[in-house]
Amino acid sequence: MSTDPPAAAQRPPRAAVDQLAGRIPSLAETEDVGPVGDRSRAWRKRIAYALMIGYALLMFVPFAWTVITSFKTRADALRLEVIPDPFTLQGWEYTFARLDPSIVTLFINSALIATAVTVTNLVLGSLGGYAFARLRFPGREVLFVVVLATLMIPDQLRLVPVYVLFNNFGLTRDVGQYIGVILVLAISATSIFLLRQYFLSIPKDLEEAARIDGAGFFTTFYRVMLPLATPALAAVTILQFQGTWNGFFWPVILLRDRDHYTIPIGLLFFRESGGFSTNWPPLMAVVVIATIPILILYIFFQRYFVEGVAASGVKG
C-alpha cells in the first residue's frame, strides 16, 4: 500500500483494517479464560489450525496429483502411489513430440492472444478511464453508464450475433480467428472502471501544473498521469492476462482450426479425440503447462489478484 498513496487515501489504511480485523471477536478471544480454560483454549486453537492446514492442503492436493501423474507410466496412472514407480518422462515426451496441434503451437497461441488482449485493455482502458475521470465533455455521464451497462449483457446473448458478424468479415478463418478473439475481448468495462476509479483518486494539482506549463491533453495524460497509475495498470494486467489465458467461451466459438487453438481449447480437443482421452500422464502434463504461467504470476503478484477480485466486486 505504501507505493500507492492515492488508493490509500480512498480506503482505510491497511494497518487500520488489520487492527479492525484482529479485534473482531474470535472463539478464542471472547471465551472466559480460567486456568482450565487456558488449556482447552490452546487445544481448540491447535485443532483449528489442524483443520485449516488440512483444508489448505485439500486445495493443493489435486494439483500435486496432476504433477505426480504426469511422471507415471500410462499403466500406473490410476495407482495410488505418491512417488511414481517407475518414474518416467514418457508422458512429457509424448506431450512435446506427438501432440497435434503441438503443445508449442498451443502455448504460442495462448501467449499471443493473452498478451494482445492485455495490451489493448491497458491502452484503451487507460485512455477511456482517464477521459471518464478527468476530461469534461458533453454526454460523458451517459456514455459511462453505457459502458457499465455492457457488464449486464451476458456473453452468451452475443454468441450468435458476434459469430454471424465475424463470419461475414472473415474473422472466423485463418489469421482472422486470432483477430476475432482479440477484438471481442479488446476492451472490458472492468478495465475502464478500474482505471477511472484510480485516476479519480489522484490529486488534480500535478495535472494542472502540467497544463499551465503548456502540455497538451495527451502529453499530460501520457507523461504525468499514466506513470502515477501503475498499481491500477498492474491490476488490469493481471486480471486480463489471467482471464484471457484461461479463457474458454470465446476461443471455443471463434477458433475453428486446430492450429489456432489456445491451450484450454487444445485440452478439450485432446479430451475428445479418441485414443488420447484416457492417456492420463501426457494429458496431465498439458494441464500442468496450462497452469504454470498463471501459478508463477500468482506467486509473485498475489496482491494484485486479490485486489482485482475485490475491485471487480466493488463495481457491482
Binding site: F60, N246, I263, L267, R271, L283, A290, T291, F305, V306
Partner: peptide, 18 residues
C-alpha cells in the same frame, strides 16, 4: 484458499474428471 480459482476451467475440469 483462493488458489484453486486461478487455474483455467478447462485444466481444472480435465483434472476433476481424472
Amino acid at each position: 484458499f483462493y488458489f484453486p480459482a486461478i487455474a483455467s476451467s478447462a485444466a481444472i475440469t480435465i483434472l476433476w474428471i481424472f
